[in-house]
Design a protein around this nucleic acid. Structure first.
Length: 352
DNA sequence: AAACTGCATGCCGTTACGTCA
DNA sequence: AATGACGTAACGGCATGCAGT
């Protein structure tokens, strides 16, 4: 059971309709995608899915375009976007036309070097302006920020401690190697500052175009294999580590939003159930009163309404199986639960 | 085949920075 | 100008899976 979610602009849609077919690991028919544990299966899938292209990447480093295409198609198929229950569709502020993504990110694998040519970028304005490059001249930053005409809010704040720090800690893993491989300048600066004992945290605001582009790519794949990450970083003039972090944070935001939505839904379910419970209690009292005043007035069929002789609680025959199966996990429809009052989960398409 | 190790990467919680009211 | 709230980039730690030994 998968539920769709729409946030923002009211044009959200549920893109995971194929989850149950494609991903046997994460969906067992009980995936309500609560975000409170049920989603916990997804990360592991991501890990596994991630490793596949990784292996492929290792194997075909020197291979030609065909292999890249194969990898991408494989990635598309196994892409976590298809495998993980991501319902949120947080629209970018400045949506990039899908064709741009299609001609770049979605086809970057066809590039000879595994990354798209800059010339095919859907971000002509973003190219050449790199938040991680040399700090722009003071007047450039000033004019760009004060005038507000430039879409690029570029403030060079220093170096990048994360890579170096982590590199030192872990002895330099691939994550950091690739991060520093693409940004020699920044690495040098970072090293210099580290040597100077300056571990100031640097934070760079991504431009709207960069964010929008990342957002679009996130819609296609909410996780990236190394090749995609490198290509995306090159495309946006970011370090691979930045792309990686952005996707991690983006996934976290998605999960948080999903949790909030689910909590709201559960709250409404609770309220509905409480109301129904009150109604039934009242009804029970009325029945008891009726029975006391006139014991021969009403004879209910035993299969419909029975009272436990010990606890004096009322039980009913279970609803039809088909109706029970249609109840979204974990809110198995209780007895007496009126279908008409079932709260509609935001992710769940309205019943026609 | 099982155990161990190193690597890569994900998530989580947190921090710190940038922006805005 | 100062400040607090908020969003988010970046970080450190830990968990996990995989490949190699």
């Amino acid at each position: 059971m998968e539920l769709g979610l729409s946030l923002g602009d009211g044009v959200g849609f549920f893109r995971q309709e194929d989850n149950t077919q494609k991903n046997n690991k994460t969906t067992t028919g009980l995936d309500f995608c609560m975000g409170l544990g049920l989603n916990s299966s997804a990360p592991r899938v991501d890990d596994q899915e991630r490793d596949k292209p990784q292996k492929s990447h290792d194997d075909d480093d020197d291979d030609d375009d065909d292999d890249d295409d194969d990898q991408m198609s494989e990635g598309d198929h196994q892409g976590s976007d298809d495998d993980t229950p991501v319902q949120l569709n947080l629209l970018p502020l400045a949506p990039v036309p899908r064709r741009n993504i299609s001609s770049t990110l979605l086809n970057w694998s066809t590039s000879d070097n595994g990354s798209p040519e800059n010339g095919s970028s859907g971000l002509p304005a973003a190219r050449g302006l790199d938040v991680n490059r040399f700090p722009p001249a003071a007047e450039e930053v000033s004019s760009a920020n004060s005038a507000g005409t430039s879409p690029f809010h570029m403030e060079y704040l220093g170096m990048y401690g994360r890579s170096n720090n982590r590199n030192l800690q872990l002895g330099g893993n691939k994550r950091e190697v690739e991060a520093t491989a693409n940004d020699g300048v920044e690495s040098e600066r970072a090293s210099d500052d580290d040597e100077n004992g300056l571990h100031t945290r640097k934070k760079l605001r991504l431009s709207k175009e960069q964010s929008a582009f990342l957002e679009e790519s996130f819609k296609e794949h909410n996780t990236l294999n190394p090749k995609q990450k490198l290509a995306l970083a090159k495309q946006l003039n970011l370090r691979p580590r930045q792309v990686e972090v952005w996707f991690q944070n983006r996934r976290a935001r998605t999960k948080l939003k999903q949790t909030e939505v689910d909590c709201e839904y559960l709250k409404r379910c609770c309220e509905t159930l409480s109301e129904e419970n009150r109604r039934l209690h009242k009804e029970l009292q009325e029945l008891r009163a009726l029975k006391t005043s006139n014991p021969f007035y009403m004879q209910l069929p035993a299969a419909t309404l029975t009272m436990c002789p010990s606890c004096e609680r009322v039980a009913t025959a279970p609803p039809p199986t088909a109706a029970v199966d249609s109840i979204p996990f974990p809110l198995t429809r209780p007895r007496f639960y009126p279908f008409s009052q079932t709260p509609t989960h935001p992710n769940q398409p309205a019943a026609s």
